[in-house]
């Protein structure tokens, strides 16, 4: 196994194209444990952290651009970003510990392809886009379209994520991400729920509800969104959100949780995230 540290997107692109079986990495907080537990080693491990474009965050022209390899701790300590997207920050802030977060990236969290990735549901709720570089240049797709199944991506060979774009939210919008883990931290979500709502007074005018860890990929729950829109998040609407989220959950039984539990708690967390997001939208 070799190690390469390109300093430009083009260099990285060439390395990937020239080395079959190579793999990019950012924090390596997934890559190293996976190799340790016996996953085959790539031919070349390509370190993305020396490419400036993948390591910075900017805000102009009505949208945010976040480097795919930037440590999540830099994002969660960016006061302006966390005040606009508290839900995305919550998601990114749940990853591992301080030590992990000084390495871990949004790109790695997404491209590891885990259905339980904590930063992904809130990114989808804010309709974030991924800018992808490949042999033929760059293309931009919704974050929701990157992961197609556990560990499966829609990216072609030689492609990697350069950065994420998120549009400024409309006024009176709030987001929230809540996860369930048996421990308070250093644990993997059994269920995660992100909600983003836009409020007009007491009425919800727009909503996105996204669940993590309860299906092969993070999933949007249109029925829960429909229940929220036009409601004042009254009891009846929240009961509908709960039921819709539980219905949308299609989890597996594993060492981390049972199907029965995940289905039930998906509803609970969606409801709680909706209430929290609405509170933030009104604030």
């Amino acid at each position: 196994m070799e190690y390469a540290a390109p300093t430009t997107v083009d260099e990285a692109r060439t390395l990937l194209a020239d080395n079959p079986g190579s793999r990019v990495f950012a924090g390596a907080t997934d890559v190293v444990p996976q190799m340790r537990s016996g996953r085959p080693e790539p031919s070349v491990l390509i370190d993305l952290k020396l490419i400036d474009r993948l390591m910075s965050v900017t805000h102009d022209n009505g949208h945010w651009t976040i480097g795919a390899a930037m440590p999540t701790s830099e994002l969660t300590s960016n006061g302006e970003f966390t005040s606009v997207f508290p839900g995305i920050s919550e998601g990114a802030g749940w990853i591992g510990s301080d030590q992990i977060q000084n390495r871990s990236s949004l790109g790695g969290n997404l491209c590891n392809g885990s259905p339980a990735a904590d930063s992904v549901p809130a990114m989808i709720a804010s309709e974030a886009r991924a800018v992808i570089a490949g042999t033929d240049g760059e293309r931009t797709i919704p974050v929701a379209d990157v992961v197609t199944g556990p560990g499966q991506l829609s990216l072609a060979d030689g492609e990697f994520v350069v950065e994420f774009e998120i549009d400024d939210p409309p006024a009176n919008t709030g987001d929230a991400y809540i996860r369930m883990t048996p421990r308070t931290e250093m644990d993997i979500a059994i269920v995660g729920a992100a909600v983003r709502v836009t409020m007009n007074g007491d009425t919800c005018t727009d909503a996105r509800v996204v669940l993590g860890a309860v299906a092969p990929t993070a999933v949007r729950v249109p029925d829960a969104e429909a229940a929220l829109i036009g409601s004042s998040l009254d009891e009846a609407a929240l009961a509908e959100v709960t039921a819709a989220a539980s219905a949308a959950a299609n989890p597996i039984n594993d060492k981390r949780g049972t199907i029965e539990y995940r289905v039930q708690v998906a509803g609970v967390l969606a409801k709680r995230a909706a209430v929290l997001a609405a509170e933030r939208a009104r604030a």
Binding site: P182, R183, T184, E185, M186, D187, I188, D254, K255, R256
Partner: peptide, 16 residues
């Protein structure tokens, strides 16, 4: 054994 590591063999962490 399905949880042979401290990620899934959950001993308490300080914040618990």
């Amino acid at each position: 054994l399905m949880n042979p590591g401290f990620l899934d063999y959950r001993i308490p962490v300080a914040s618990d």
